[in-house]
């Protein structure tokens, strides 16, 4: 996943919260709390960076914490909160 391009699903709205953000999927009606500001920055930055690794670096996440973040992103992917970015999607 680290070397793959991802992006926020188009059906997801991110609402800033004091603890991070709330992600709501209008399609499957799933709700997920993002409990760290750094994770919010990573998720918001996915579309702007070549891959997950670049988004983690840009958000200032220490490399030692990347496995935890990748697990969290995998959880978000399982809920369709984030999706693999296609080549078409990469050219905005």
């Amino acid at each position: 996943m680290l070397g793959e391009p991802w992006t926020l699903s188009p059906a997801v709205a991110l609402r800033p919260e004091p603890f991070g953000a709330m992600a709501y999927h209008f399609g499957n009606r799933k709700l997920t709390f993002l409990k760290r500001m750094e994770l919010v920055q990573v998720v918001r930055g996915l579309a702007d960076h070549a891959d997950v690794r670049a988004a983690l670096v840009a958000a200032g996440v220490p490399e030692a914490q990347w496995p935890g973040y990748v697990d969290a992103l995998a959880g978000l992917a399982a809920a369709d909160m984030i999706r693999p970015r296609t080549m078409e999607g990469a050219v905005a």
Binding site: T32, K35, Q65, G68, D71, A72, G75, A79
Partner: peptide, 13 residues
Amino acid sequence: VTSESLIEEVSID
């Protein structure tokens, strides 16, 4: 830092 400390899924139902 674990997945559980980063995200929490909520059942709206």
